[in-house]
Write a protein that binds this DNA or RNA. Structure first.
Length: 242
DNA sequence: TGCCAGGCCCTCTTTAGGGCCTT
């Protein structure tokens, strides 16, 4: 349950990683769009009335080379692999990434709420694992919201289940296709998935913002996906709160 | 290190099983 009844900045998040939870994945790409509550409450539209991505937002996308090898499927889906990341001399998820994230989040008005699709079961536990590997964590008071159970819950409450009524799934791509009658944009690139996540959120923003109190959780309640090994002891004392 | 998930939802359910959702 949310510790605060109001969040000022929503940071939409997507991770590309070396595999699914059963593969003890490591993050290979992270993308975040930070959007203030104002832009979600006052969505922008073009001449035809179609929803637009908010003009004022902060973006951050970083690629990093994991130590673990990609599963073949993960590499196929993301277009990333250890070779092309190494060829581009990308370091791993290290203290530089943490510092960049810290600076990015510090620019946003707090409280901050992280938003991801299936975030409670994938993105948030994996991000917490990587942060714990470096002995750090998100800023105190961070909240998080998963659009997958939130949208399922809204549809169930309104008795118009997307899947039941149209045979569609709640995958991010299918939700985008259904809401905007358009094919997914740059799916499986982290930034493309965050774009679709923001647009899906905007389509249901009044309802999602209203149900925030019931659906959001404290970051402190997110359990790491697995117990990480500590391989960079020099970063152990560094924290986001420092 | 690990070599592999797991919580949630739906229904031909509840004494269960199958599929979704994330890479």
């Amino acid at each position: 349950m949310a510790e605060s009844s109001r969040c000022e900045t929503f940071v939409f998040l997507d991770l590309e990683a070396t595999g699914l939870p059963n593969a003890y994945p490591e993050i290979a790409e992270i993308s975040l769009f930070a959007i203030h509550r104002f832009s979600l409450e006052h969505p922008e539209r073009d001449e035809s009335g179609a929803l637009q991505l908010p003009r004022v937002l902060d973006k951050l996308t970083l690629c990093m080379c994991p130590e673990r090898h990609f599963t073949p499927k993960a590499s196929e889906i993301t277009g990333l692999n250890n070779q092309n990341l190494t060829n581009n001399h990308k370091p791993g998820f290290d203290s530089t990434v943490i510092k960049t994230l810290q600076q990015f989040l510090k620019r946003q008005e707090s409280p901050i709420c992280l938003v991801a699709h299936n975030g409670f079961d994938y993105d948030f536990p994996l991000l917490r694992t990587e942060l714990q590997r470096l002995g750090t964590d998100m800023p105190e008071g961070t909240l998080c919201l998963d659009t997958l159970p939130a949208l399922r819950g809204l549809d169930k409450a309104h008795h118009h289940s997307t899947r039941a009524s149209h045979g569609k799934s709640y995958s991010l791509g299918n939700l985008y296709r259904q809401y905007f009658n358009d094919e997914p944009k740059a799916a499986d690139l982290a930034e493309g998935d965050v774009y679709m996540l923001v647009m899906v959120f905007l389509h249901r923003a009044p309802e999602l913002l209203q149900c925030f109190d019931d659906e959001a959780q404290s970051w402190d309640d997110i359990q790491p996906m697995y117990t990480p090994t500590t391989r960079r002891p020099s970063t152990l004392l560094w924290t986001l709160l420092s």
